[in-house]
Each structure stands twice: as structure tokens, then as C-alpha cells.
Design a protein around this nucleic acid. Structure first.
Lengths: 217, 217, 217, 217
DNA sequence: GATGAATGAGCATTCATTCAT
DNA sequence: GATGAATGAATGCTCATTCAT
């Protein structure tokens, strides 16, 4: 957990000094407990008492650390975003795919590995995307989306530079299109109960990318 | 309001006979009140008392009509879906655009008009898409999505028949791609607070369609 | 149903004139429906709506006939008591057992036949005896008990006259003792879940009577 | 209050750990308040709010201690039974009456003293015996009855051993008969509004015992 | 007279937050 | 600083009774 974020959140009155001074191990235990439970249920249905029990901390302490249930939730969001960035910054450092199309495909598919290693973070993000009221999750979702689009934009930019993509394309728009497709597949995969689910996620992705790269006229 | 739906819902114990027998005007008043409030806030935050007040009905009556708050909610969903279908079935009856690309564009843009005339329905759909837990809204969302994809599939099919689209395209996949784009734009438009919002919805749509129709290689 | 009772209850504002004027058949249908349901559950748990449904009458009518749920209940009690008296007055008219001991035994056992022919009345009496608050059932229970003791007293009196019983016995006390025993057996039979239930009711009765008739010293 | 019972009830989820950890004084205050009110009225008519007020505790705390109103009720029953046993076990330790007949008489009459010292327990038992639905009070009543019969059986057994009672008597049956008589007197004394009430309880008891001990033939 | 729709007082239960220890 | 007991506002649901048709 990035201590700088904790320091900033203390200034923003999201966490208290008491929390900041906790041992990293304890902070992490609280983070993990809250993450797990907020990833399993909607905000309203998650009880402080259960988080406390899971973190082996008292309910009173939780309130002392965050003041409000909502602040604990905000704190979570900040750490998840920060971890998400770390993870994919690192991913791109080690990625050396050449074709633009493949880079996008790999990026999207790499979320499967992210999920395997960071299951609770992944579940939390899904809950934020689809099940918590915009009032609570709005800014979190925007940030995750902006981050994802930023990665896509960088891939596209290099594609333009390397003449794999047409120069006249608007990068921002293309990033949005790719992002919508990625997001749509995600939703189908995890929420819809319709036929489409039976088709493989990777296959769906492949076809969608074909459509955009080849055009349909 | 389609009385056949009310009859069906009575069989499914979602509404009571007492509700079914209400005058259409009263049923509509209740529908409108609930629609407005459930479109403004998350399920848990909507109070029966306020719906009652808005509909100028007693809380007791509401319970007498639906038994459970959740049933009132389910009832709403059914009517909204039914109205959505009526609206767009009618839209396509009167539509006579020729180019496939333009047909999709018009269909998406027509949601603006739908919104203008059916603001509360529109807001309710948005709440369902983004803010209520999947447990509550899951089936509603699936149905709305299936309906939208069905319309897109029909447009695509005619596009293939009239040789405007390549014959080797998978219709289902293409419909999904278009739907993801449409859905992404919707989200950006109504929920994100980022820069992208400043750009015009229609322009965004136009560019997205260009990308898919032209290909980007 | 004894119309005189209905007339008296009207004067006591337990039933309305509207009810009195109902056809005997309808009055009886209401009586039977209420009897059945009040015999199945505690006063508070019996819903007017269900009585109405069972009697094929509207809830509004029920209120119109009795004003208060409690009055319907009082009405029931009156009729049950009246029927109970008729039944056992008639029983004693046709009874010609000689020995006092046997007369008591037969009287108690005859309740089995009463139960077979008047199951709902019997269940109602049990509910009154054991499960409804004294506030509601108190006077009913007293009356039933007085009636039963009266029958016992008459049996005892004849026993004394025919020199089957000691002359120095206090009839009232003896009647109470017999009644307590009868009542205790009833309770064991219908409410307790203990071992005693396995033993036969008739056997239990037989032994209890032996004890009292033989003395135990 | 027996702490072992509280510990057992915690395992059976009737009381919570929070309640168990309360100071004995506080537990007792709650017990006494609930006892008083449940002894005055039927289960449904007793309000948590009033118990809370009487115990000088918040309604929320009550729920925190017992989870359900019904559990508070069950808890009461357990303690009352346990106290009843303690009281009469102690009574028999200090009792040294010789004649069987007198022993029974004294045992029954000792309930008057029990009542004087434990008025609320006594009232609660009466409410359980006569006024709460069998669903709620059934097991409580069975247990109290079994306890009472057990005491009677022990008296009878010693009576047989000391040749005060005939050897051929069935102890179980005789205990039941005595119990019925005791119970009948109790009922007359506290619930009936009839003449019999005017006669003294002790006199009634005396006569009833005479009848059984002397036989009536 | 009959109906059944309308009403609203009443109550148990939930749970974040406060606060005493 | 840590704990967890105490609190009470908030809300869905029940159902006898009222009342308009």
C-alpha cells in the first residue's frame, strides 16, 4: 500500500492520523478485509461489523480510523486505483508485442491474469462498475475508465507512428470505441445471463477486433 | 399501460387483484410516481412513504396493491420494458432510412427524442443499468439489452441483404459491437464527469460509426 | 342456531340488526367459517379477511354484522355454549347408566363422540381453554366449566340419593375434583407432548376414577 | 440468575454474547422488567419499547441482547423454570412433614408463599399456563408440569414406602390426579370469576384431598 | 344491504455512529 | 489507542376499521 496515498487521504479527512500511524501490516489487513466484503455485496449491504470481524479489529476502531463507513469505501477505491495503475504500468514495461491489433488484444486478455492474481480487487471493480450507485462509485469508475483509455491511446498512438493505423483517425475516439467494446465484453462475461455468454470471451474479443480493423463495408 | 401485463403480473403474484381493478388513471398515477422516484434514487433509498405521497395514495394502499416494495419495483420494470418496445417498434415502422450506417445512427440518436418524451422512463433505465445491484436489475438489464441488440441485428441483416455490408460478417458479433459502442456513449453522456462529455454526443457517435464502417488499417 | 340468542346479542350490541335479519343459512355459514378459523389459531392471528373468504362474504359485511372482530368472537362463544348445552342435555335424556362411577366415565368419554360430530366446536373450546388470553376467553371458560360441573353435580346427587356415595361428601367439592381430573386428562391428551400421552385416554380416566372411588389409604 | 443457563442459551442463539457479558445487576434488571410485562399481558401485546423503558435500557440494546422479541421470551421461560426448581428443591430440603396427605397439602399451599415472594414469576407462569398460544408456551408448560408431577411422585413414593398409601396404586396416575386437582384449584383461584372463588383456597384443597384419601364410596 | 378499496396507527428490527471504560 | 456496549432514527409491513360506491 502506497503510504503517500494514506498521507494525502489524511489531509482530505478520509482517514485519520490514527489510521496513518498503524503498522503497514494492520493497514493491509483492514484493506483486504474491506476489499473482500465490498467486492461481495453492495455498499448498503456490507456491515461494518463484518469488516471488523474479518480484519480482526473492533468496530469502534474502524470508526476511529475512518469516521464514516463511506470514508472506508473511498479509501478502498484510492488504493485499488493505485494498485491497478501499478499493475498495468508494469505490464506495459514488460510487454513487447509488435502489431497494434495484438497489443490491444493482449492488453484486454491480460485482465484475466490480473483477475487471477488480484481477485478481490477485480471483484471490487466490477461491483463499482455495475452495482453501486453512481453517487458512490461515479468518480472511481471515471478514473478507471480514463486509465484504461489512456493505455489504449498509447497503443493507438504507437500504431499510428508505425503506420499500422490510418493517420486521419481521431485517437481519442478510437480509444473510446475500443474501450466500449472491452467494457461490453466484460459486462456480458460477468453479468448477462444471455446466450452470448456461452461463446468464449477470447473469441468474442477476436471477432470484435476483426470488425474494427477490417471495416464492415 | 398494457393491461395484459397487469393480468400476467397478477398471476405471478407481483400485483394484486385489487391493483388490477384500479382505474387506468389511478394505475398510471402510481406508475408515474414510482417511476419518478425509483429513477431518482437507488432502490433502498426510495421510501414507500414518498411514493405514496407523490401518487396521492396511502402507504397502506401501496402495500395492498403490491404486497412488497420489491414487487412495485418489478412491476415498474415490466411496464418500462413494454413501453420501450412499443416505442421503438413504432419508430421502425415509420423509419425509412436507406443506408445501414445511417439507420444505426438514427436509431441511436432517436433515443434523445425518446428521452425528451419519456424522461422518467429513461432515467429509470439508467438507474437500472448503472446503479441498482445486479440482483434487482439483472434481468431487466438483460432484457433491455437483448431488445436493443435485436433491433441492431435487424438493421444489420437488411444491410447484408442489400449488399451494404460484407456477407462474411457475423451478425451477432457485429450487433454486439454496435451495442457496446452505443452503450458506451450512453454511459459517457450521462454518467462520466470527464472531458469526453464536452464533445457532442452526435459527433462521438458519428466518429465511432466511421471507425467501424471504414476500418482503421 | 338459536334465534333467541341472536336477538339477545343484538340488544347487547354484539351483533347488528342487519345480521339478525340474515337468512338462517347465511348466519350459519358465517358461524361455521368463524368457528373453523378461530378454532385453528389464536384470536390475534385470525384475519377477518380469511373468515370473509371462507364464509363467502365480504369483509365489509362482516364488520357490518358485528362492528368489531371481538364481537364476532363473542357471538361465536355464545352459540358454542348454547350448542354444547343442547348436545349434553340431550345426551343425559338418553343416558340410562346406573352406577355413578360409570355415569361419570361415560359422560367424560362421550366427549369423544361430541368431538367426532362437532369437531370445529370442540377445537374452538380447546383454543378458548388454553390459548386465548383470559381477557377474551375468561367468561366463556367459566361458563363451560360451570356447565360441566353442573352435569357432574347432578350425577353425584343421584349417586348420593341412591346410596352409592357417602352422604357426608360435599357435592360441590366432589364435582370440582372430578372436573379437575377430566380437565387435566383433556389437557394431557391435547396439549402435552410428554410420555403420558402414549397411555390411552380411557385407561387414564379409568385409573383416575378408581383412585377417587377407592381412596388411596 | 444462573449464569450456566445464560451460557447455554448463548450457544442456542437465544441470547448474544453481549448479553452474557452484562453485569449480573443489569441482566437482572432486564429479566425483572421483561418478567413483569410478560406477566401482565399476552406476548403480542407486550411492546419491546415498554420493556426497554421499564428496564431503563434502549430498545436497540434489547435487540442487541436477544435478536428477536421471541428470544427474550424464551430466555425468561428458562430462568423462571430454573428459579422454580431452585425454590422448591430448597423447600423440600427444609420440609419435615410426616403424613403424606399433609405433605401434599403443604406443598400446594407453599405456592402461596412462593407467590408472595416471587409475584412476577408467579404471574408469568399463570400467563404461560392460560393465556399464551401453545406454540409459544407449550414447552414451558410441559416442563413446569413435569417438575410439579415429579415432586408429587416423590411424596407419593415415600408414602408407599412408609405404608401410608396402598402398595397397588400406580404412582404416575396418582401424581397426575393430584396434579390435576392442584392445577384446577389454581385455575379457579386466579382465573374464574364464579362463586367457587369465594370459598377459601385452603379449604377447597383440604376437601379435595379428603375425597381422594378417604374414597367416596 | 353489500362490497372491497382506502386508510394509518402500530411495531419489530436494522445498523451506523457515539461514547464510556 | 482500542474496545464493544448503547443508542435511536429510520422504515417496511400488518390488519382492523372506515367509507364511498
Amino acid at each position: 500500500m502506497d503510504e503517500n496515498i494514506v498521507v494525502r487521504l489524511e489531509k482530505e479527512k478520509v482517514v485519520t492520523a490514527t489510521f496513518r500511524k498503524l503498522s503497514p501490516a494492520k493497514k493491509d489487513k483492514i484493506y483486504k478485509a474491506a476489499l473482500k466484503l465490498f467486492g461481495e455485496d453492495v455498499f448498503e449491504s456490507v456491515l461494518l461489523e463484518n469488516i471488523a470481524k474479518t480484519a480482526k479489529v473492533s468496530k469502534g476502531s474502524l470508526i476511529q480510523y475512518f469516521g464514516l463507513k463511506e470514508n472506508l469505501f473511498l479509501f478502498l477505491g484510492e488504493i485499488v486505483v493505485s494498485n491497478y495503475i501499478s499493475y498495468f504500468d508494469n505490464y506495459f514495461l514488460n510487454e513487447n508485442v509488435v502489431r497494434t491489433r495484438d497489443r490491444i488484444e493482449q492488453f484486454v486478455l491480460s485482465h484475466k491474469i490480473y483477475r487471477k492474481n488480484n481477485g478481490d480487487e477485480f471483484d471490487f471493480i466490477l461491483k463499482m462498475l455495475f452495482e453501486n450507485s453512481n453517487k458512490l462509485s461515479g468518480s472511481f469508475v471515471s478514473r478507471i475508465f480514463d486509465i484504461q483509455k489512456e493505455y489504449l491511446k498509447k497503443i493507438i498512438e504507437r500504431g499510428v507512428q508505425s503506420n499500422q493505423l490510418r493517420r486521419d483517425i481521431r485517437i481519442q475516439s478510437l480509444a473510446s470505441v475500443f474501450h466500449s467494446i472491452l467494457f461490453g465484453l466484460l459486462r456480458e462475461r460477468f453479468l448477462d445471463k444471455t446466450i452470448s455468454q456461452k461463446i468464449d470471451f477470447a473469441q468474442n474479443l477476436n471477432q470484435s477486433l476483426n470488425i474494427v480493423f477490417d471495416g464492415i463495408k
